[in-house]
Design a protein around this nucleic acid. Sequence first.
DNA 1: CTTATATATGAATAATTGTTCATATATTCA
DNA 2: TGAATATATGAACAATTATTCATATATAAG
Lengths: 116, 116
Amino acid sequence: MEEELKCTVKHQDIIERVKTKMPKEETLFDIAELFKVFGDTTRMKIVCCLFESEMCVCDIAELINATQSAVSHQLRVLKQAKLVKYRKEGKVVYYSLSDRHVEIIFNMALEHIQEM
Amino acid sequence: MEEELKCTVKHQDIIERVKTKMPKEETLFDIAELFKVFGDTTRMKIVCCLFESEMCVCDIAELINATQSAVSHQLRVLKQAKLVKYRKEGKVVYYSLSDRHVEIIFNMALEHIQEM
DNA sequence: CTTATATATGAATAATTGTTCATATATTCA
DNA sequence: TGAATATATGAACAATTATTCATATATAAG
C-alpha cells in the first residue's frame, strides 16, 4: 500500500526548479526596499511634482499641502534611494528625478490599478 | 526698492502648471498602496516563486523558508491587492499571478537597482 | 467517525515609519 | 553684524505592520 506523501515532498521537482531561478536574497531585499520608498502617498506626490520640472522644497510643500519639514524628511528618503537628485542655487535647493525609471515604474502601477 | 518675495510666490506659475497635471488624491493613494504591497521581502519572494508556475502554500513556505502561517497571511495581502489569484484542488490551494503587470513592475525595479 | 494534512485567521508582540515640533545650518540682504 | 528666508535634522509620538502562536476550518483517507 502506498504511503501518503506530504505536499512539499510531492512537488519537490517544482521547488528545485524555482529555487534555481530565484534572485539572490540581497537583490530581493533591495527591490523590496525600493518599492517601500514608492509606498507612501507623500513621496508619490513629491515624485509627481517632479515629473513636470525641477522644484524647490517649499514649492513642493505648498503644492502638496505638507509642512516643509515633512517634505524635507521625505526628500531625504528619495535621495537615499537615488530616485532624486538636487542642485543648490543660493539658499534654494532644487530637486529633480534622477532618471526616467521612476516615471516608468509609476506609470506601470497606474496602468495596473486602472485595469481593475 | 524691490521687495523680497517668498520662494512660493516667485514660482507661483510652476505651481499652477504642475497642479493641473497632478493625478487625483485617490489615485495617488491607490498607487502608494500598491507599492506598499510590493515593499516587503517576503511578498517579493512569494511573487518570484509564482513567476515560474502556480504553487501551493506549503511549497511556497518551504521554498522561501517561512512558516505556513506567515505565507498565508502575506498571500492574503497579495490577494487583496489583486496581484494573485488561486484555485482549490482538494485541500491544496494553488496560487498564481493574476496578470503580467506584476512581473513587468518587478523587472523594472530590478533594472533600476542594477543600474546603480 | 477519527486522524492527518493543508490552509486560514485572530490576537499579541515587536519593529518600522511618517509627522510634528523645536532647533540648527546656510545664505542673502540691509 | 543682524534679520529674514530656505532647508535640514534629531527626538518624540502615534500609527502601521510582519511574524508568531494557537486554533479553526476543510478535505481526504482509513
